[in-house]
Nucleic acid binder design. Structure first.
Lengths: 202, 202
DNA sequence: CATACTTTTGACCCGTTGGTTAAATCAAAT
DNA sequence: ATTTGATTTAACCAACGGGTCAAAAGTATG
């Protein structure tokens, strides 16, 4: 019942994270994780019975790291635009530090769409509350009347897209110049905020 | 020198498209393509020497089908918002009919970012012309001054995201109801247009 | 029909890969 | 030091998967 992750266990998990997130479930070789962790392949199976188990551990962590952020939007009772700014700032920072995770999640989920039920469970509990909050801003005349879901999907899409489409964006718009692409990303959070606010404010 | 695709050759290509686009390069088994095409596995190698070759054929077709659409935006000399509407309508229709292709391209490119050079070549030739066109709309006071690239990236992202994130979007916002999700997508092209226009028009 | 050439197949090859196992090493605890 | 249990390893296994090959089936040409 070793609840505290062993040194090696954490070590394995870190290695697994790195390889799985970069290469995907199918592209990952257990041997490569072992190498990355500097241990024997059999040790992987000692700590995590199978590739499936190990993958699930990695995926779950990545998923929970990225999804529940949405709840930020409902917790605070500051003005909506303020919360929005705060959220975008946080979320893009998070992606910036883990640029491969969104693409990883998207790909693995579309490989196995039904598995999402296992991961979500009660996660979306307070989404209706968020809808209410947004709709109140509409009746208050602060933002244009529209389906709140459109706003939220646009919000996430605008944050995530430049990262999951990195090779294309970098190549098409920035002549494959990594530095220019990076400075574009740094500016991105303000651009996304302005873009959304300009669009939805009355 | 058989330039005209044989019946079987096209048959194989179709089967390969289906499997590769759904399962990805690594997730695809040659045997599954053979089954899908109703033929023997050895025949795959008779027509396409290797898995790599076959994959490349599939990827190239998918890539060319989806990327050059951007050029529409520069060809016409109608008012920008009109061209924009036309583009969004077309592009979302295209995705609607091939909903898995964008995710496929995104994933495979991020697995192999350098390969993009092979596929792009002179493709982005008239992108500067598009920038000029947009910037002219800015000096004409029709749209707000901003980096044209931000507009284009937002445009593509807003179109593509609901499809590549289908499982999450469908689950989080539509309780996994396929029909509701579909009707959301149908409405999407108008929403995206409004969202962008509202944001960038002066 | 006979020859030659293309298309298709079943059987096989062999490197890879996830997973197992039994033994060795290590770390307390007695 | 010896026992006991957890950790780590090398060697191995079976299945999988891409690719090959020789022969069969099909098709045209003389």
């Amino acid at each position: 019942m070793g609840e505290i992750p062993t040194n090696t266990e954490q070590n394995i998990l870190n290695a697994a994270k790195k390889v799985f997130i970069e290469k995907g479930r199918q592209g990952t070789r257990m041997q490569e994780i072992a190498n990355e962790a500097g241990i024997n392949k059999a040790l992987l199976h000692y700590y995590f019975r199978s590739k499936e188990k190990l993958f699930e551990a990695v995926f779950l962590e990545a998923f929970h790291k990225f999804l529940p952020q949405i709840e930020q939007l409902v917790e605070s009772d500051r003005p909506f635009f303020e919360v929005l700014k705060f959220f975008i700032d946080n979320y893009i920072n998070l992606i910036f530090e883990n640029p491969h995770i969104p693409g990883f999640i998207l790909h693995e989920l579309s490989q196995n769409p039904d598995s999402i039920a296992r991961f979500m469970s009660q996660r979306v509990s307070n989404l209706p509350k968020l809808y209410d909050k947004i709709e109140k801003e509409m009746t208050d005349g602060i933002i244009k009347p529209m389906d709140p879901r459109q706003i939220l999907i646009n919000l996430i899409g605008l944050c995530v897209f430049p990262f999951v489409a990195k090779p294309i964006v970098k190549s098409v718009f920035f002549q494959n110049d990594e530095e220019v692409y990076q400075s574009f990303l740094l500016d991105r959070k303000y651009q996304v905020y302005d873009f959304i606010v300009n669009s939805i404010k009355t």
